[in-house]
Design a protein around this nucleic acid. Sequence first.
DNA 1: GCAAAATGTCAAG
DNA 2: TTGACCTTTTGCA
Length: 263
Amino acid sequence: MPEGHTIHRIAGQHRTRFSGEAVSVTSPQGRFLEADRLDGRELKAVEAYGKHLLYEFDGRRYVHVHLGLFGKVRTAQQPAPRAGPTVRMRLSVDEWYADLVGPTRCRLIDGDQRSTLLSRLGPDPLRRSADPHLAFERISRSRQPIAALLMDQSVVAGIGNVYRAELLYRARLNPYRPGSDTDLEAWTQIWEDARTLMRAGVRSGRIVTTEIRDRDNQGRIVRASDAHYVYGRTGRWCRTCQTEIRAADLAGRTLYWCPKCQR
DNA sequence: GCAAAATGTCAAG
DNA sequence: TTGACCTTTTGCA
């Protein structure tokens, strides 16, 4: 499920498995009408920016994919099973196929539209060239709660509801503090923490923010409830201070925090 | 078997 | 601020 780490993970896999080849592009569901125009063309590159995924084909044409809340990509070895009516786009090469299901966006765009899209995104902690100061300029001048700013993709690209909650907890920051209360040192710490956690997310394919390993000594995947400090832990006890974890609605999304650790 | 919720975004009012 | 959109999974009868 999709925060920035998921998108970068998919981009990496698809770059390796599909780019540099002539790719069969189809829309079994029929709703990606432009699939025909790309079918059999060479895929030049695959890039992730925040939560956006871009497949570049000849002539600066791009498939822009956004998974939204429910979208998924399934990548596996051939032979591909018959595609059901929910598969918006299928990519196929000799060895691999990938099915895109339930995206909020899947459309063909040109270079100008790509530029417009990228211009609306803040720095992405998963991209080497990202400049955290661009985000700091927005945050330090805003009276919006820091929790809202971290979710604003034009401020920082790629952070979602889980990373937001966990980053604020790890920084011991109250989510309702105005952005303007954040000094550069505090922001730098959050940014570096985001890079660390999100890179680990790209590697493992899951969000683990607690100081545990992805797998225990027997190789079993740790329980999801053990992987987070506050996200999804409403009514349970804070690992650090035993206070009850709170949840509230902020701009239509559920915010989680520890009222004692994050004063 | 169905309702509700989920790691998201945008447009309408 | 609310509703629409897209799909799968979970929890409750």
